[in-house]
Design a protein around this nucleic acid. Structure first.
Ligand SMILES: [Mn+2]
Ligand SMILES: [Mn+2]
Ligand SMILES: [Zn+2]
Ligand SMILES: [Zn+2]
Lengths: 141, 141
DNA sequence: ATTGAAATTGAATATCGCTTTCAATTAGGA
DNA sequence: TCCTAATTGAAAGCGATATTCAATTTCAAT
């Protein structure tokens, strides 16, 4: 961890250590605010901007990436070996991940066919989960 | 057009007429600001908020949809019969569309397997276009 | 261990899409 | 024509993200 930062010219600090640990202990798709709140419950002296900057840093060193579902809130998702897509509910915000490995090869080809060097892929499905559909049905319409 | 609005309880106005026409005359992936600027070149009296709201309206009646690539700017894309994906350059912002029809059937299955009723799909590739790669190579690194 | 340049921090402030508010105007069915 | 609900434009508001800056801290080089 410390090595990874130093390799790219960044320094390790107590704040970063706590933020890193908290981030990786939390689930996936964490927003800056959510992380900030959790971090500051452990150490009230850590500033919001530091949490925010560290999240960017985690992306910069390649350990996470931003996920944007169009609700104006950026979430941060740990990068896994297997590329995955997101399925999320427009009503309750539930996230489901699914394996997108097979699609990536297709998309790779699409990119090179257009002369692009791909940097990242995004495969998303927006919809309504079973639970939300049942609830809206119960409450009429 | 007017009928489409009336069918959903909306009224037609001169402002909307101009905004609709301008939007559909412009290319794809238009941001609210871009449209607003173009509209107001034709009629300076039209307020920004009206352009805004009309863009939302166009989505509501099903003629366009929001496209969000994570740069904080919502773009509006006319809905075409064929579902398509987006390939865009992280450097210059160039957009390329590609046919994603075959992927949709796969995604449809993924959704139903999880008990979701899909409302929309997003297939995107971020990368660097040929032109930008050449330019950054010329200017060292 | 000491030093010092460069990175980092936290509070405050700025930014900037986007949204809401509200009084005045307008559309269009009755 | 009349009436009411929808619409408009200006201004103010909102909220996530970004930047500024003085004070502090890290860590490579002494
Ligand atoms: Mn994920
Ligand atoms: Mn498109
Ligand atoms: Zn749901
Ligand atoms: Zn480019």
């Amino acid at each position: 961890m410390k090595e990874l930062l130093h390799a790219k010219g960044f320094k390790m600090t107590p704040q970063r250590e706590l933020i890193f640990r908290t981030f990786f202990d939390m689930g996936r798709h964490v927003s800056a605010d959510e992380l900030s709140e959790k971090v500051r419950r452990k150490d009230r002296s850590i500033g919001h901007s530091t949490v925010w900057r560290t999240l960017k840093l985690i992306c910069t060193v390649g350990l996470a990436q931003e996920v944007n579902i169009g609700d104006g809130i950026t979430r941060y998702d740990r990068i896994t070996r297997v590329p995955h897509g997101h399925l999320f509910c427009l009503e309750c915000g539930e996230f489901v991940e699914f394996d997108a490995g097979d699609m990536i090869s297709r998309l790779d080809k699409v990119a090179s066919d257009s002369g692009f060097v791909p940097e990242g892929f995004k495969v998303e499905i927006q919809g309504y989960c079973k639970k939300c559909r049942q609830q809206s049905q119960e409450s009429g319409r």
